[in-house]
Design a protein around this nucleic acid. Structure first.
Lengths: 192, 192
DNA sequence: CGCGACGTTGATTTGCCTCAACGATTGTGG
DNA sequence: CCACAATCGTTGAGGCAAATCAACGTCGCG
């Protein structure tokens, strides 16, 4: 059960079997059904989750009540509201399962315990968050500088499995356009 | 000279005078004139900079040759291309001084040396990057969900000093709109 | 002084949104 | 297992926010 997550953390930093043991013992394994809501705006996020199986979305709800999807999470990815988790303060984000989902969860106390027992994990988390920053930065760039068509094509390259797994209007939300318009973009692409 | 930077790092993690000594000794103090270019797309970023005085911008250049500003850096802030610095790979970003600027720089070797001498700095960097992620996330949200007017007002709140210091068309670029349109937004706001 | 960088304003265009109607598919309770 | 509702994707007509293009005034600077 811990194979994927251990491979994942070792991609950033090399850990011994003992260190991984400590890590694995702190994780909680949980299953969630499709549409389960793990976090709501106004709540303090008390988990960092590794996705063993399934998919989730992380989103804001804007002033008009529209959902704005910031991130999709799939197998081998991580999901959390970092700001809320780290500062122990209420956040503005929602996190929800798009499919039946299997997670390995770390709560704040366990994380502190992990970091004090195996300080090398600080490095792992730093690297993980660094990756996150550059993804976000690139996403911001695309949001500003690219056309709807370019955004969609880039998304297909980057997340080829998602269109088969989640409703199209979620992808539109992630790309910052209306579902109707994404549909038209796709129609245009098919003609080519 | 090290007062600001030491206060800054201690905001995230408590360090002893000795630890700060080690840190300070690894920093290089440098001055750059206005318009100096510290990093170009295609280059590997070999610095993390703390801004003692002055201001900078970090930006992409898109397919049409337009600049897209991702970040302004001012006093007490940090600037770098994290992805390029961390992976030692060429990046896509430019970093340029907007005013005469005074920086404290850390190169990759010095950073490694710092982290091995004072591992607590891993924690500091993790916290710093976490803050960065949530800023980026919020910026992405605004870019997608808010009107030009809301973006500009939010910018004024967040960076009240910048409009007096940098040309307005850079602010437009940061907000993801044309300089002409920002000018019209401002005109509309003045009428109210 | 004269040039280049900058901000403003107006006319026009356009990429994307809004609203509405319509099939297809899914899923759920009877 | 069917019937009906809900969810979803598509298409079209019309509208709007922001982009484009162009002209012009101002300022700072070599």
């Amino acid at each position: 059960m811990f194979e994927e997550i251990n491979n994942n953390v070792c991609r950033y930093v090399a850990f011994s079997t003992e260190e991984l043991q400590i890590f694995n013992n702190l994780l909680k394994h949980k299953m969630f059904p499709k549409k389960a809501c793990l976090l709501r705006a106004g709540e303090v996020c008390n988990f960092e989750g590794f996705i063993v199986k399934g998919s989730l979305r992380k989103y804001y709800i804007d002033d008009n009540g529209n959902e704005v999807i910031i991130q999709f999470g799939i197998e081998n990815g991580w999901i959390s509201d970092i700001a809320s988790f780290s500062d122990r303060k209420p956040g503005n984000l929602f996190i929800e399962c798009l499919e039946d989902t299997e997670l390995l969860l770390l709560d704040p106390n366990s994380k502190e315990s992990l970091l004090s027992q195996v300080p090398k994990f600080e490095r792992f988390y730093r690297k993980l968050v660094e990756k996150n920053v550059s993804t976000m930065q690139n996403r911001l760039y695309f949001s500003i500088a690219k056309t709807a068509e370019q955004k969609y094509l880039d998304f297909l390259e980057h997340y080829p499995s998602i269109p088969q797994r989640v409703p199209q209007h979620y992808i539109a939300s992630y790309l910052g356009m209306t579902p109707e318009f994404l549909s038209k973009v796709r129609a245009r692409l098919l003609k080519k």
